[in-house]
Design a protein around this nucleic acid. Sequence first.
RNA 1: GUGAGUGUAGCUCAACUGGUCAGAGCACUGGACUGUGGCUCCAGGGGUUGUGGGUUCGAGUCCCAUCACUCACCCCA
Length: 418
Amino acid sequence: MRFKSLKGIHDILPPDIHIWQHIEGTARDVFRSYGYREIRLPVIESTDLFIRSIGETSDIVEKEMYTFLDKGGRSVTLRPEGTASFVRAYIEHHLYNEPPPQRYYYMGPMFRYERPQAGRYRQFYQIGAEAMGVDDPRMDAELISLLSEILRTVGLEGLRFEITSIGCKVCRPAFREALKGFLSDKIGGFCADCQRRYDKNPLRILDCKVPQCIEMRKGSPHTIEFLCNGCREHFERLRSYLDLLHIPYTVNPELVRGLDYYTRTAFEVTTDLLGSQNAVAAGGRYDALVEEFGGPSTPGLGFAIGMERIVSLLKDGFKVAEVPELVICFVGDEAAERAFLLAQELRLKGLWVETGYGDASLKSQMRRANRLGARYTIVIGEDELRSGSVDLKDMGSGEKTTVSLDAEAIAGELRKGR
RNA sequence: GUGAGUGUAGCUCAACUGGUCAGAGCACUGGACUGUGGCUCCAGGGGUUGUGGGUUCGAGUCCCAUCACUCACCCCA
């Protein structure tokens, strides 16, 4: 084998592709009822865009970006997530001039240069949604219900919704100081990573999975205890709306997001059926990002669903093998030509029809039809050419029905049998 | 970036402590059944055992390197 796909980058083939199409199709349907429209964004952007939005000290920017120089010497990056591109486009095309909320969705590949493992790839796919222009927590609740509805319709159950509020520019500094104060005298007992996080991004210590760190941080302050009045009210109203919509959730005050642009609402959907990569979707609010990017001060929020993670959850018990309606077998050159033409005529009527191309024996043609799972077969030979009729064989029951050797008649009979 | 495991036909796997060990099943092709699939039986094609070195009379089997894949950590979708 001469060439292989790159590490962590995979082909998606049948039968898996049917699951992907199922997910994408149902997501589109649900998006439609919530008023979301599709937007297609480039997979490559200026590197600065991601640095500015995701955060210079985030892991994504520090070590996971596919960044290179183009022929003009510009630093460009394969998108590691969708929101940055979306906000760029939102401002670039003045989408804020549409009546709010402006709601968009997208689906496509993201790229992160990480060591691959179960549920984690270098090219992975997300379905993302963004809702702009409304800061009312009803929007947050609506977005979360949209997410919940997509996951439910797609066929997933037993997922956990965890939410929290991480505050805003007003309340976060106070929390940060309180947290550092709490940790200051015991930070030496934490893992090396946490000691590093203490200065860089102390909030991340709350997310550490090392048992000793989990133990030592017990009793630490939480963001939700430090929310300013505005943020607290926002969070409380969000919770009441989620209750109103009957969306079950738990408040996880230790939830931390990996991207710096989030404010207030942050949420994550997890499962324990997936091993260590347990997040299937996540999102939150980013009320400052548009303005930071030079647009008018505009609140926004969104989520992203990890496609391959829900594909693998759906994999068991998902069988939608598509099979041909009819396989046309033939014996002899004249019959071969008739079969070739008949296949064409039936395909123009929208049927999936297969026929043979070489001079395989009838037996092997039939074997192939069986292998393909064809619903029906016909055999064209000298007799059929002479009589102008064929036996339509039901491959399930073995029963034969005589019909005239004519596309119209055969199509009619096939449709009847469905 | 760190750590561990695995690499034998298209797929799933055999081959005791190094000595006909290069095999089986599935799949594929053909036949038994001159023009009708699924079951059974028979036959056939297909591998320089990831790659490169080394030890040995002799290496899928041991050693080193390298590459790939997998899993975990980190982090995330």
